[in-house]
Simulated scan of single mutants.
Amino acid sequence: MIHSQALGLASLLAFAFLVNLPLGFLRETAPKYSVRWFVYIHLSIPFIVAFRLAEGFGWNIIPLTLACAVAGQLAGGRFRRWKNR
C-alpha cells in the first residue's frame, strides 16, 4: 500500500507540473517581460502553496514543486513552438 504522504507528494508535484502546462503554452504567445508574461509564470503559485499547506508539507518541498512548475512551463512552451512549426 502506498503511504498517504507519498501519495500526497506525488499529487502535489503532478498538480504543479500539469497546471503549468497550459500556462507555459500561453506564456509563449506573450511578449517577454510583459505583464501577461509575468502573470502566466506566477499565476499557479498561490494554488500550489495552498495545495502544499493543505497536504501539510513544509518548506523543504518547495524546491521540488518549483522544479515541477518550471518543467511544466517549459514543456507547455515547447509544445506551443512545436505546434506552430
Rank of each mutant, 00 (worst) to 15 (best):
M1C: 09
M1T: 15
H3A: 14
S4H: 14
Q5A: 15
A6V: 15
G8P: 09
L9C: 09
L9P: 12
L9D: 07
S11E: 12
L13K: 02
L13H: 06
A14G: 14
F17Q: 11
V19G: 02
N20D: 10
P22D: 11
P22E: 11
G24H: 05
F25Q: 02
L26H: 03
R27M: 11
E28T: 06
T29P: 00
A30H: 05
A30W: 03
Y33T: 15
Y33N: 15
S34C: 08
S34Y: 00
V35P: 00
W37R: 10
V39C: 10
H42S: 11
L43T: 04
P46G: 13
F47A: 09
I48Q: 03
V49L: 12
V49M: 11
A50N: 13
F51D: 03
F51R: 06
F51W: 14
F51S: 03
F51C: 03
L53H: 11
A54S: 15
E55W: 05
G56L: 02
G56D: 11
F57S: 05
F57G: 04
F57Y: 13
W59E: 15
W59D: 15
I61Q: 05
I62V: 14
L64P: 00
T65W: 09
T65K: 03
L66K: 01
A67D: 07
A69F: 01
A69R: 02
A71G: 08
G72D: 01
Q73K: 00
G76D: 01
G76A: 02
G76K: 06
G77L: 04
G77C: 01
G77A: 12
R78C: 09
F79L: 12
R80T: 05
R80F: 10
R80V: 00
R80Y: 08
R80I: 02
R80W: 02
K83C: 06
K83S: 14
R85M: 07
